[in-house]
Computed example of a mutant assay.
Amino acid sequence: MHSTAEISACYANLLVQARALFAGESDLIANAANLAALVFGGLPGLNWAGLYRFDGAQLLLGPFQGRPACARIALGRGVCGSAAMERRTQMIADVHAFPGHIACDAASRSEIVVPLIDADGRLLGVWDVDSPLHARFGEADRIGMEALCAALVEAARSGAGA
């Protein structure tokens, strides 16, 4: 496994790249597509990375990298629905032990989901990353993913009212 310093440096590099990709683009879907490709290709041990956007009632599948996924997720259902409803990052070491886990890909063992909340407190969606490795995500991943998500939301905010 990599050291916390190596993981943090990897996320710092991803954040620089993400901000460069987002520069001048405020569309959440376009930026999420680039972020999914960046994260999926830039972090080891992943089998899925992508966006579920909130339509006001449920989470709908957005841009992602990985195997086909569930198209719709109710708030409070599974790790993604729990992150959306609770509005807090969920970091699950063993998804099979998570009550109500939705198994889109049976190979997934661990998951991190970050809610995307705008400056007005509105839920935009969730950022979901899965791994076939048990306990793949640690505190450095949480900090790094939350920073990437903050940049994604900030880029979307920069286009508000434009």
Rank of each mutant, 00 (worst) to 15 (best):
L60Q: 08
S3A: 10
A106V: 15
Q90R: 12
F22E: 01
C149N: 00
R142H: 10
D118A: 12
A93C: 07
T89F: 03
L14E: 05
F40R: 08
R19Q: 14
A9N: 11
I143P: 00
L133M: 13
E154Q: 15
C149T: 10
M91W: 08
D27C: 12
C80D: 03
D105M: 11
W48A: 07
V126Q: 01
A74H: 11
E146Q: 15
R87C: 11
G56Y: 05
N13D: 15
R87D: 06
A162H: 13
R157M: 13
R157D: 10
E25R: 14
G41P: 05
V114Q: 02
S82R: 06
A160E: 15
G161T: 13
D120K: 14
M91E: 07
P99F: 07
E139N: 13
I112S: 04
R53Q: 10
W127Q: 00
D105F: 09
I7D: 02
D128C: 05
R87W: 04
Q17H: 12
P63Y: 04
L43G: 01
D118H: 11
Q90Y: 07
R19P: 01
A83W: 00
R87Q: 13
R77Q: 14
N31V: 06
E139W: 12
D105C: 11
A93F: 03
I112H: 02
V153I: 09
P44Y: 14
G78T: 02
A155L: 08
A12T: 12
S158A: 14
L61E: 06
A156Q: 08
A106Q: 15
H101F: 10
F22P: 01
S26T: 12
A30D: 13
D94F: 05
W127K: 00
D27S: 15
A18K: 02
L28P: 00
A69M: 07
G50M: 01
A119E: 12
S158W: 06
A23I: 08
L14G: 01
R157Y: 09
L61N: 05
D118R: 10
S131P: 08
S108N: 07
A162Y: 13
R19N: 13
G41K: 10
S110G: 13
L46C: 11
R72W: 04
A74M: 13
L61G: 06
A155F: 03
Q90S: 06
A12Y: 03
A5W: 07
V153L: 00
A9I: 05
H96V: 06
R142D: 01
F54R: 01
A150L: 12
G125D: 02
A151V: 05
C10E: 12
H101M: 09
P44G: 13
A107R: 14
G76C: 09
G138F: 00
R77W: 02
